[in-house]
Amino acid sequence: MRFWRRLKTAATILLLALGGQTLPAAAAAPDYAALNAALVDSYVIPHYAAFAERTAVLEASLREACADGRLEARESAAAYNDAMDAWMAVQHLRFGPAVLFLRYDRIEFWPDKRGTLRRHLARMLSQRDTKALEPRAFAEGSVAVQGFPALERLLFDDGDAVRASPLACPLALAIGGNLRGIAGALLADWRDGGSSYAQVVKSAADGNEHYFDAKEASLEFAKALRGALLLVEDYKLGRPLGDEPASARQTRAESWRASRSLRNVRINIEAARALYRGTGAVSLSSLLREQPEGAGLDRAIGAAFERLSAALAAQPESLAVALRQPDGWEKLDAVRAETGRLMELLSGPLSEVLDLPIGFNSYDGD
């Protein structure tokens, strides 16, 4: 039922955007190779570089915070938030090096629907096994305790029991080193050497072991764009909001202990818009405008992004605080609905005009 509702809505939006006219055949095939090169150079590598830089700062901050053997959360809160901001800007790039060695889940094991982090963290703190915190052993251990959610609990949990553990500082340092290592490896895999993933994407036009052609590589970026919106609609807003105000559960939100659930959403939307617009000569937006009647659809997508950004700018960073405001649930539900409408524009009209069959991606069915 939901699928057909979305399909009908997407068709309606497209007709409105294009003045009720049927799309004619495209004048020329989009330049997928140019798009791939532009997105790699202007978006992917700069944002992974920022992630690597900020996780290095986070690790250094944690070392300073643990100088006296006790974890002082306030000393590392700013570095944590900066690193988390950088992660939010690449969180939707769930392909290529990000899926190697369980990197994605090791950075952020979320949503944690079965309380895996709580159980594994409690076991680790009670056993006090420092050998399990050595870099290799830690990286090969439970993914639930290796990344941002576990560090968030160490830094922002209201209770002091976790931070009071003798293992709190060693664990925080292990997480900091792990995040720095993963972020550095992601950047290196994308950027460095003749066999870098940047070269894999850029050479897709000739065919390689990852992509049949440039169009297939462009499809990865289109799916990542849709994935960013799906994360927001279904997980970051859908799960904590529920179907009505009475069913809202703020503890289901991402980063709720750090009071930044909506800050994450705002950055996700900004990142999706940046991926769509691009900063180089070629972007999904520019390719769309080159197609017959594509300019109207591009305007509709741009307007949807503007509405979302304006709505989120008016919200606090904490979803819990937003829910306590007058009509708080209704306003967030409106953001969720607007996100869904934008996702429909991408999944249907944009997908058809640019001949990129987005379909499902790695977030569907999680």
Rank of each mutant, 00 (worst) to 15 (best):
E244T: 13
G302C: 06
L308M: 09
R273S: 02
R260C: 08
S286N: 06
G328V: 12
S259H: 14
A274L: 12
Y276K: 04
G242T: 12
G302T: 03
V282G: 02
V335D: 00
R257Q: 08
G238T: 12
N268R: 09
E254M: 02
E330T: 09
A314W: 08
A272P: 15
R341P: 02
R299K: 06
L241M: 02
E254I: 09
R299G: 06
G278N: 09
G296F: 09
R336H: 10
I358T: 15
S285D: 15
A248C: 13
Q291E: 06
S285N: 07
A320N: 09
L308G: 08
E254H: 11
S283D: 01
L356Y: 04
V282M: 04
R266M: 06
L342C: 06
R277S: 08
D298I: 10
G348R: 06
E352I: 14
T251W: 15
L287S: 09
L288H: 05
R299E: 10
S347I: 07
D355G: 02
P349N: 00
S255P: 13
L262S: 07
E338S: 12
I267R: 08
E317G: 11
F305D: 05
Q291M: 09
P357M: 01
G328C: 00
V353H: 09
D243H: 04
Q315D: 05
S318L: 01
M343F: 03
K331I: 03
